[in-house]
Simulated scan of single mutants.
Amino acid sequence: MRVYLPCTLPALAAAVEAGGLGPAPLIGYAVTPALTEWYASGDIEELEYVALTEAARASLRMLAADRADGVDAPPRRVVIAVEVPDRSVIVRAELEERARVQLSDVVPMTKVAAVHVDDLDAAADVDAALAALPAADEGDDDARFTVDGAEAHELMWYATQEIPDLLRP
């Protein structure tokens, strides 16, 4: 099953060094029965795009948490696409996150299919979204608009052999 794992560049570097993504359980996003039912008219590519978008939202929150912890995380959302056995996926879909799943196992880097990362041009909008996130969570419509501005940027696709290039300063 294809699962999209939210990440950050520092966390990706740590995963590469460790040889895998973990520890388990890991929260990810995938095409779940709830997502398929909610988006009944969508084909598999559209459903996977929705799951990828939800993972990108979670990546923004991971960036905010990293920065709150003093981690020097570049303002780029990161989503790692992995192929894992269906048996290791537990559906945790909730009303707001219909694609949410939990992985019960550590994911070795050999299971990474691709990495999706914001282009450098998105940095200013991602920084603005990070600053607006607390107010958006409080219901501020202007702040929500700013957070949504980061989503206007498509994540770029990178093959696994390009990961070292992404991690170079």
Rank of each mutant, 00 (worst) to 15 (best):
K111S: 15
L9W: 00
Q102H: 04
S41M: 15
I80S: 07
Y39A: 15
M62S: 05
A131W: 04
V91Q: 08
E151S: 15
A13H: 03
L5S: 07
V31Q: 10
D141E: 15
A30P: 11
Y29T: 08
E48K: 10
V71H: 06
V31C: 12
P33N: 13
D125K: 07
R92N: 08
L63F: 02
E17G: 04
A135H: 01
R76M: 02
R61E: 07
A68F: 05
D118M: 04
V115P: 01
G149C: 08
R87I: 11
I163E: 06
L133E: 05
R168S: 08
E151F: 08
C7T: 14
P134C: 02
V147E: 01
A113L: 12
E46H: 13
Y39G: 09
V106N: 14
V106W: 10
A136F: 00
A114R: 12
M62W: 02
D137E: 15
L60N: 01
A15H: 09
V16F: 03
L5Q: 11
R2C: 06
E96T: 12
D140M: 07
V107Y: 06
A113K: 13
P85L: 14
L103N: 05
T32C: 14
R76N: 00
G22P: 09
E138H: 04
R87M: 07
A113R: 14
A34I: 12
E154P: 01
P25K: 13
E162I: 02
R57S: 09
T36A: 15
A128M: 01
V84C: 10
D140L: 09
D43P: 03
E96W: 07
H153S: 06
R168M: 02
I80P: 02
A55G: 02
V112S: 12
A124Y: 03
Y29R: 12
A123E: 08
P108E: 13
I90G: 07
V112C: 06
A131N: 00
P10E: 02
I27P: 04
L95C: 11
I27G: 10
A159M: 07
L63Y: 00
E162T: 05
P23D: 13
D72G: 01
S59N: 01
D118S: 01
L133F: 00
V112W: 10
L95F: 15
V89F: 02
V106I: 14
A13G: 05
S59E: 06
L155H: 00
P6G: 07
E151M: 14
A143Q: 03
